[in-house]
């Protein structure tokens, strides 16, 4: 069983993982960071999105051992204690979530979209979210949240 060392939300951890341990399983079961959700088995839904060396990935389609040496960012690392990240605040302000299950992947994706393109427009946001399925909101409030979040992130 290989041991891997990763930095998760800034903290370094070393753990043994099985060959077939997915990154999502590693994060949820071994690190007990259950904010990363699994909503499908064919890598379509995007609920499990985390960042790997700054890029969004579906953690259900990456093996934990592939992440050895990498920086991993999960939803738990966004807020600073009780102070939510501006994107999280924007989701709350715009009612960009209902059941909350797709939300962690959605927020991680939204932050990354804006980091890569601070002036992203509505079309860009809609296309940028094509790897994240929400069944509750109809997306409009998510789009509005990302716009507001982007503005706040631009400062």
């Amino acid at each position: 069983m290989p041991a891997i060392t990763v930095r998760v939300n800034g903290l370094e951890v070393t753990k043994e993982v099985g060959a077939r341990t997915l990154l999502s399983t590693f994060i949820r079961e071994q690190l007990k960071l259950t904010g990363t959700h699994v909503g499908c088995d064919t890598s379509q839904c995007g609920a499990c999105v985390v960042t790997l060396d700054g890029k969004t990935v579906k953690s259900c389609a990456v093996f934990a051992w592939e992440a050895d040496g990498a920086d991993i960012g999960t939803i738990e690392g966004l807020a600073d204690g009780d102070n939510m990240h501006p994107m999280q605040e924007a989701f709350r302000e715009h009612h960009g979530l209902q059941c909350g299950f797709c939300t962690p992947g959605m927020v991680m994706t939204a932050v990354s979209l804006v980091e890569n393109n601070p002036d992203i427009d509505e079309d860009g946001i809609r296309h940028g979210l094509e790897g994240n399925i929400c069944r509750c909101t109809g997306y409009q409030n998510i789009i509005d949240a990302v716009k507001t979040g982007a503005k706040a992130m631009r400062g």
Binding site: S43, G46, V49, L52, K55, T56, V57, K58, A61, V62, T109, S112, L113, G128, E130, G131, N132
Partner: peptide, 8 residues
């Protein structure tokens, strides 16, 4: 695919 697929 989508942005996440394109990153991997």
């Amino acid at each position: 695919g989508d942005p996440h697929v394109r990153n991997r």
